[in-house]
Design a protein around this nucleic acid. Structure first.
Lengths: 153, 153
DNA sequence: TATAATATCTATAGATTAAATAGACATTGT
DNA sequence: ACAATGTCTATTTAATCTATAGATATTATA
């Protein structure tokens, strides 16, 4: 289950993707529009900046904007930044930890073998889907909804 | 990330799958062998019983045993019982909730559309993998490890 | 029928993590 | 110089996960 924090991050990114990159957006404005607690959003945006997804400008006229094009921002990367990964098992995480607390023989642990398949399945979706894809799919769905409305009138 | 509870459940099931079904295993014995807090394990086994995966016998000579063959127990089912589902998003859960707290138009929510793909990817692995598969893969890995040992001697 | 062995149930405590808030500080445009 | 902004550190609150305690119901068997 992805956390509220990650959902906030994705919403913020979708919003920023709809803005011209030469016009920084205020944290407070983003927070208001997306109904995200301002201080919480601050921390989120900062993480995304530190990892090169966003850029910011301090001072008057400052704010946040995308550092890359939406088609070069994978959803997997965003989830990794905010959740610390998306592995179903700690011991399968990219990071330092090939260690299992409870398991003395990771290489033949059945749970680990199965969850490794799950991880690959998740990864194959999240790493190939970009912010641009997500927005496009949403737009398509909106159009489809409108079309249905038309017919029903 | 799956919880410790689910890992305990899977370990217990692997253990029980290795026992004859006409010899109930004591909770305390299972807890000792798998190093699971006894009272915690009690609750886990009870959930698995209530959902028809395990059977129990009360009184002297009682204990727990599998209610079905390992090849008829999907890992997805176990995860669902103990985690309440494996959807990355609340609003995609099997259960009652096609409601999003934060989202007024689920049908065109980009996050939801993408996570729906993730859910399908997870599901396709977890629902097709059984307890028997998990054990088989573990056994194969153990054999492979032994073989490597042989060569290195 | 008494007793011991067992699962079942209800309640609660403790630990960890997620979410939200507060306020001081640093930077920049005008 | 000043106002507008992001940055940083710390704290609080809430939720969830993990673990524990003890009373109760059921059963085999001596």
């Amino acid at each position: 289950m992805i956390s509220r924090k990650t959902k906030y991050a994705l919403k913020a990114l979708i919003n920023l993707a709809g803005q011209p990159t030469d016009e920084p957006v205020l944290i407070s404005e983003l927070a208001r529009q997306e109904q995200i607690p301002r201080k919480f959003l601050e921390a989120i945006l900062l993480s995304l900046k530190n990892v090169g997804v966003l850029q910011s400008k301090i001072g008057k006229g400052g704010g946040y904007f995308l550092a890359k094009e939406p088609r070069n921002i994978s959803i997997g990367n965003i989830v990794k930044v905010l959740e610390g990964g998306y592995s179903p098992l700690q011991c399968l995480n990219d990071n330092i930890s090939p260690e299992c607390d409870e398991c003395n023989e990771p290489s033949s642990c059945g749970i680990r073998l199965v969850m490794s398949d799950v991880l690959m399945a998740i990864s194959s979706v999240l790493e190939t889907t970009t912010l641009a894809d997500m927005i496009e799919r949403s737009d398509n769905a909106k159009r489809a909804n409108l079309k249905i409305m038309d017919f029903s009138i």
